[in-house]
Amino acid sequence: MTKAGAPIVCAMVAATYWALEPVIDVARDGWLKTFAADLVVAIIAVVTLVAIAGVVAREGGKVLRRESGHLSSAIVLVAFAVTFAIGVAQGPAGDWFVWIFDYVYAPLESSLLALVAFALVDTALRRMRARSGETALIIATAAIVMLGRAPATSAAATLLTPVADWLTRVPNVAGQRVLLIGAAIAACSTLLRLLLGVERDYLGERRS
């Protein structure tokens, strides 16, 4: 078997299992089902650990080399070390860990996402331009849906609510279905490529 042979065989076996799993009764409640799902969970957990190691190595490298932004990197590393140590020592329900979540993580995350609103109004005023009929239609639809989803100050403004609901229920559903069916067909095509051993992007090979 060539060097790439083993990963290709693994991918083919996994693709075959997951393609047939919903229709194989034996697999539904048996050991194979548990084993396969456990394997996926384990792989995702390992990938998460690799990602964490990557972040630590990158930020640690910046601090050691005193590159620009090394102070921010040092803060990231200290925050990671403290949270990790408390999490391992106390578990996720420990008092200190809950304190970090309630008084550090939650306010920081909420503040960060609140800034998106400012970027959005700035973009609305300076960048979103109705340069063609299509963009004008998209901008008008966005305005109606925004006002309809959160009715404005008067009862008269709630007249937009049924229009916003119709836009969400009819044209939006049609568009979403096109996207979802397209994505499902693409997934089937990728699965077929994996089953046949043609799909090799995960090995770093480029498609011809």
């Binding site: 609103a117 959005l120 109004v121 609305a124 005023l125 300076r126 960048r127 979103m128 331009r129 109705a130 901008i139 966005a142 305005a143 925004m146 006002l147 989803r149 959160a150 009715p151 404005a152 100050t153």
Partner: peptide
Amino acid sequence: MRAQRWAHLALVLCLVAGQGLT
């Protein structure tokens, strides 16, 4: 919801003002 709908109104006004400015 009061804060949200006023924020949505501000966003729509910015959109309209942006078109007028252009």
